[in-house]
Amino acid sequence: MADTFDEQCDYLFKAVLVGDSGVGKSNLLSRFAKDEFLLDSKPTIGVEFAYRNIRVKDKLIKAQIWDTAGQERFRAITSSYYRGALGAILVYDITRKSTFGNVKKWLHELREFGGEDMVVVLVGNKSDLVQSREVEKEEAKGLAETERLCFMETSAMQNLNVEQAFLQMITKIHDITSQKMLEAKKENGTTLRISGRKEIHVTDEVTATKQASCCSR
């Protein structure tokens, strides 16, 4: 059945949201996908996902974002969903030091099950609750620099930096994908020698990562 996601797009990028339970992953996703915030949001059971079309430069990208459960009892069923993910938003709660302490555990999981080129954005959510802050911004920024992650603080409630966090991830995925395509074309190019010692490089213009149609499934 046709819906708003049937619009023609150039790429389909899968990404995941990870982090402890209660850090605000579901509200970050609902803000990004539907501009909604639920004050009484319930814990995610298993995995949920949402789509949104984003234009990066001259390409239309369908971002497929998977929201994974943070509770330990669901880890076995969610780890398989990392496969094929090109990016991740790793979320902690700035008012709960323990959620920041678990960032390295989540990062290890991402690197174990995700691809080596996965783009990871470390997000400190609930930045509106500054009076209850337990994780300083500089501390999180230092960890991000050490682990080579992008970093941003957000507030799903006040809709601060939510769009920017997702766009930063999607744009970086696009840049990496574009670079890989260029390199693949060079590697697969056939060199034809003609008179005058000139060379013509012939490359295949069909790209395996390009989607003919990115309708919702």
Rank of each mutant, 00 (worst) to 15 (best):
I65C: 05
A69I: 10
A69D: 06
A69C: 10
G70S: 04
G70T: 04
E72I: 11
R73H: 12
I77W: 02
S80R: 11
S80D: 04
Y82D: 13
R83E: 06
G84P: 07
A85H: 06
G87M: 10
G87H: 10
I89S: 03
L90E: 06
L90F: 01
Y92T: 10
I94C: 07
I94D: 01
I94E: 01
T95K: 08
R96W: 01
K97D: 04
G101N: 14
N102H: 14
V103M: 11
V103E: 03
L107Q: 09
H108K: 15
E109W: 03
R111T: 00
E112F: 11
E112V: 08
F113K: 14
F113V: 07
G114V: 02
D117P: 01
D117F: 04
V119T: 13
V123Y: 05
N125W: 02
S127I: 00
D128V: 00
L129N: 02
L129K: 10
V130C: 11
Q131G: 02
Q131E: 15
S132F: 09
R133Y: 04
R133K: 13
E136H: 12
E136Q: 15
E138I: 09
E139G: 01
E139L: 08
E139F: 01
A144F: 01
E145C: 04
E145Y: 07
E153V: 02
E153A: 03
A156Q: 00
M157C: 11
M157G: 00
M157H: 10
N159Y: 02
N161D: 11
V162K: 03
V162C: 03
V162D: 02
E163Y: 09
Q164C: 06
A165Y: 00
A165D: 03
L167R: 14
L167F: 08
Q168A: 12
I170D: 04
I170R: 09
H174C: 09
H174K: 12
D175E: 15
D175P: 00
D175H: 10
S178Q: 15
S178A: 14
Q179A: 15
